[in-house]
Amino acid sequence: MLSIRNLQASVGDKPILKGINLDVKAGEVHAIMGPNGSGKSTLSNVLAGRENATVTGGSVTYQGKDLLALAVEERAREGIFLAFQYPVEIPGVGNVYLLKAALNAQRKHRGLPELDAMDFLALVKDKMKLMEMNESMLYRAVNEGFSGGEKKRNEILQMVVLEPSLAILDETDSGLDIDALKVVSHGVNSLRSPDRAMILVTHYQRLLDYIKPDFVHVLSDGRIQRSGGPELALELEREGYAWVGDATNEGVVAP
């Protein structure tokens, strides 16, 4: 589904991603861990099409297409979903409006008829129940005045409504209380299927107790320094990142 080859990206003159290689197949869940500032969000954003980091080399193929050639909104319509580490507040744009416009843009792209207001509301209310969210949230502006946890929950609500093929969750677990973590994990797990893939960026093993990854990668200094199975996360939890090595360490282990 996704194949990243020697991806390099810089912010200004500063190289952030220094040659990322990663293959994600349909049905797989990959966790990416790594120290603060190692480039996890940059990688997530580059995949979603954000232009504040400039791609300086390498390639990304998604479902056979050159991902880097697609506009942000085309990637979204092709089924890529990024749950933001810091979801932005958009006063004046209604949550329900955004959900409907997003869903219909995607349906149109796939040649499906747009949902009418009734069907749409029924669908959204169903998903809100799954996410244990209060319906009044629908009629508020996007993330405006939401608590940190509510914002994260709202991201996952959007995800379960849009049913992406590739979901990239950037620290969705950060800032969630224990109950919310369960709800969010439940939402994410409800989407797991043989034709979908997920990339979970996280700092904590705890999330991986709820969402079992197939692979765990350690990103450090702009490179994937190690890859392994779920046990790697446990090892990281015990040992920290010190042993992973820095940029000069070439000990990359392929999954």
Partner: peptide, 18 residues
């Protein structure tokens, strides 16, 4: 706001509409 614009587009909303 560049971030808000990106957020809307990342949900599939066309650049102009966003």
């Amino acid at each position: 706001d560049e971030e808000q614009w990106f957020y809307l587009r990342a949900r599939g909303i066309a650049a102009d509409l966003a």
